[in-house]
């Protein structure tokens, strides 16, 4: 058993370092889809988070509760909902997005948005409200005041960003349902791991798992680095 594991690990490392085009194509799909999704979700999520923390409008508390509840919705349910919307018989079927990378991006936006909104809302609400008032009273425009407040809570927002990205880079359900796991097109790291493991090709699964671990480590390390710098300054 130990020998099997070691052999698979060695094979996995060999696959990675030999530049196996299959493996790197999967990694590229994963990273490009998730980066696109997070880049679209980021302004939307933090914008909503700011409004929920600072604006007063009817239904604000209800919206906060909704986004907090959406945190615990399984990825596969999000995938199923979007599948029904994007399938031929669905209301958005004419867009012909199902089984494309764009559909995966949509799914990942839907998954990361509640994380960004809920954690972003906590970040803004936990920040010092005097920052907003000081900016306004010193003549800053609303946009500049928003930027100022955002800078003041940047570490908490970075943590939200890391959590949001972590949620989508490793999810299987929505990507499988919306992308269809098509080789060289919509096959990303989690769907490939699921497929290869079911086929008994553990080496490829381990290689892709290692990439996911490295990505998570890099994300966490960069967050710690930023937070460390902040601690020195304040």
């Amino acid at each position: 058993m130990n020998n099997d594991l070691t052999a698979n690990l060695v094979e996995a490392l060999a696959l990675l370092f030999s530049g196996d085009p299959e493996i790197w194509a999967i990694i590229w799909v994963s990273v490009s889809v998730s980066v696109k999704a997070i880049l679209i979700a980021l302004p939307l999520g933090f914008g909503l988070a700011f409004l929920l923390a600072y604006a007063e409008f009817p239904g604000r508390r209800l919206l906060v509760t909704v986004f907090n509840s959406l945190l615990s919705v399984p990825a596969v349910v999000v995938g199923l909902t979007l599948y029904l919307l994007l399938s031929r018989q669905g209301p958005l079927g004419d867009l012909r997005l199902l089984f494309t990378q764009d559909a995966m991006v949509l799914g990942q936006i839907a998954l990361s948005l509640p994380v960004l909104v809920a954690m972003g809302h906590s970040a803004y609400q936990g920040g010092d409200r005097r920052a907003w008032e000081t900016a306004l009273t010193l003549g800053a425009s609303r946009l500049r005041a928003v930027v100022s407040v955002t800078r003041e809570v940047k570490f908490a927002l970075l943590a939200a960003l890391a959590a949001g990205f972590g949620r989508i880079i490793a999810e299987v359900g929505a990507s499988m349902m919306l992308g269809g796991n098509i080789q060289h097109y919509t096959r990303n790291i989690p769907t490939a791991i699921a497929l290869e493991t079911s086929k008994g090709a553990f080496a490829q699964g381990i290689a892709l798992g290692l990439v996911l671990l490295v990505l998570a480590l890099l994300l966490s390390a960069s967050l710690s680095l930023f937070q460390g710098r902040g601690a020195v300054r304040t």
Partner: peptide
């Protein structure tokens, strides 16, 4: 009103940065 007045909190808020950055904020 915001354009013509400044309100100072009891404990003034300092933005993350230097004294110069804060003084130059407006």
């Amino acid at each position: 009103l915001r354009r013509h007045t400044v309100y100072l909190h009891q404990t003034p808020y300092m933005f993350d940065g230097t004294v110069f950055d804060n003084a130059a904020y407006p």
